[in-house]
Design a protein around this nucleic acid. Structure first.
Length: 322
DNA sequence: AAGACGAAAGTGGTTGA
DNA sequence: TCAACAACTTTCGTCTT
């Protein structure tokens, strides 16, 4: 089917991308000197005064609290911000239901009015983001997505929603695309297969949306590496640590010899695992490995022939049983 | 009978003119 | 926009254990 989105680059290019760390320049005047305003959390260009960065971390002194009295005077922050709640965990709620009856009737009227306005302020986007994040949390916990990737996915979705990219697309497909992108960025890639079945969406649609939002938001996604998949596939196959480390060793060798470039990383991971099971006498069928990796037996066969030929693993496979 | 193997044809995406 | 291309899939017949 080949729907999996894998950008194929040579190993050399990947290394270059990792190393390059260009000097920061002001986008409007190309100046390279900046003033950091810690109070406001902004980085400002010294030359033209434009704000380069917002919401940066306050590096000022942090005080510890030793008594409850000290709380108010020394604390600088509230609850931690989180992108996985639609209001980042920071919205104002006026009038909890019980509180309303503790005040006089004329005040109560005023509070009802305020409450109504507060509700109106939450815009259509907020509502949309709220539902989307509920969906994200559901699928994220189903797929065991690490928290950091969930935050990233939520952030991507919010940006997409604010740029109006959700319009004309189903909300689920954008959530799915955001999640897929976030997982890849943090090197915990899930296959399109897994994500599409969790959302009950078409792989093609998710792939399309994923590429669209990456392009529009300007997310640079590096190709995934076979190693990113090995541990997850291995644990699904219930392989021993010995076999896993063998597979890792094989992949590292294969990457050094540049026989993995241009090949689908999941196919390489699957083949390496298959070879490792043969070497370590922990045999799994090609079908079993192929199923968890989401590739076909044929692909495993092709990859694993290359691995054996080029890495001279023939001797190891015929090792006597333990 | 199940698994492994390989050939051949088809699919969907990328690339370069 | 279109053709060439590489990777991968599907299908199917054969061989091995």
């Amino acid at each position: 089917m080949g729907v999996e989105i894998e950008m194929v680059e040579s190993n050399k290019e990947i290394n270059q991308a990792k190393e390059s760390n260009p000097v920061r320049k002001c986008p409007s005047c190309k100046g390279t000197e900046f003033i950091i305003d810690r109070e406001a959390g902004e980085t400002i260009c010294k030359k033209c005064g434009s704000v380069i960065e917002e919401d940066v971390i306050d590096y000022g002194q942090d005080w510890r609290e030793f008594s409850s009295d000290a709380n108010q005077s020394k604390r600088r922050t509230g609850n931690p911000l989180t992108f996985t709640k639609h209001d980042k965990g920071m919205s104002t709620k006026i009038g909890k239901s019980g509180d309303m009856y503790k005040i006089s009737s004329s005040d109560r009227k005023r509070f009802y009015r305020l409450k109504k306005w507060q509700a109106r302020i939450s815009t259509a986007i907020e509502r949309n983001v709220k539902y989307a994040l509920a969906e994200l949390r559901r699928v994220g916990s189903f797929l065991n997505v690490p928290h950091i990737a969930m935050e990233e996915a939520a952030k991507i979705y919010r940006t997409a929603a604010e740029k109006g990219l959700v319009r004309g697309r189903s909300m689920e497909s954008v959530v799915a695309g955001a999640l897929y992108a976030a997982c890849r960025r943090h090197r915990f890639p899930r296959t399109l297969e897994e994500i599409s079945s969790a959302f009950a969406l078409d792989k093609k649609e998710i792939g399309k949306t994923y590429r669209f939002i990456c392009r529009e938001i300007g997310i640079r996604i590096l190709p995934t590496f076979p190693l990113d998949y090995v541990y997850r596939f291995a644990s699904e196959l219930k392989l021993s640590p010995k076999t896993i480390s063998k597979a890792v060793e094989i992949i590292n060798k294969a990457q050094d010899d540049e026989i993995t470039s241009g090949k689908g990383p999941m196919g390489v991971a699957a083949a390496a695992l298959y070879v490792a099971t043969l070497i370590c006498n922990e045999k799994k069928t090609q079908r079993e490995v192929a199923d968890v990796a989401g590739v076909t037996e044929v692909t495993i066969r092709n990859r694993y022939k290359e691995l054996i030929d080029k890495l001279n693993l023939n001797g190891e496979i015929t090792a006597p049983p333990a």
